[in-house]
Amino acid sequence: MKSLGLRRGVNWAMTALCALALLVALVPLASLLWLVISRGLAGLSWDFFTSTPAPVGESGGGVANAIAGTLYIVGIACLIGVPLGVGAGVYLAERGDGPLGGAIRFTAEVLSGVPSIIIGIVAYALVVLPMRRFSALAGGVALAVLMVPTLARSTEELVRLVPRSLREASLALGVSEWRTSLSVVLRTALGGILTAILLAVARAAGETAPLLFTALNNQYWNLRADQPTASLTVQIYNYAVSPYQDWHDKAWSAALVLLLLVGTLSLAARLLARNRFR
């Protein structure tokens, strides 16, 4: 039997080690935030949120069209991806024990492991080439493909978390099975599914690669689904790879805006999740 003092000492040392590991892990995050805020904050102005980009050399200009474009493309992605992802998830949870369920689950797993740039290429081949133009729709499709597998898996988990007893309660009341799935099971899991959707949206909004060959970019306002559309991520990429210092500064500011957007979505998701368990 070790002495109490020794055990206390070991306990203290291990706690200290864990705290140290946490600090080390926090360093990159903190430096990232610091860098983006310190470099980007200066460029933020009312103008930045309301104007379209200015040509090289001209001062001013903003990323309003890119913010709108990101929201627009992500909106299209949600319209396509959420019903597919949630629907597949419900199917997997309710009927997914057979071979078909296994196949769907396997496909989703593979799909979620595919690098996002490849998904962009596929969307390029499937949407851009037949339409003969880059478009918000193509970008939306690419992001939707990205969202579906994670949404399907998290929906499946959340629906499976709904106690069997609730389903049984509904069935025992003489409610049909499809009505039970919809009105009782899905409704109970809804809070969690909304959280999962928000997280998927946040992730999709931060993607650049799938948008490069699909939505491309646009210096002007566009809210037509069949036209090239700006997005924050591609805009940042374009600014960053340019040779102009002015554009580099704009890239930092746009990055800060994107960070704020994604951060807000994540925060909303967390708040929603917390409310669910209150």
Binding site: P163, S165, L166, E168, A169, S170, V184, R187, T188
Partner: peptide
């Protein structure tokens, strides 16, 4: 049922 299972 055994455990109360109202719809939450």
């Amino acid at each position: 049922f055994q455990r109360p299972n109202p719809f939450p």
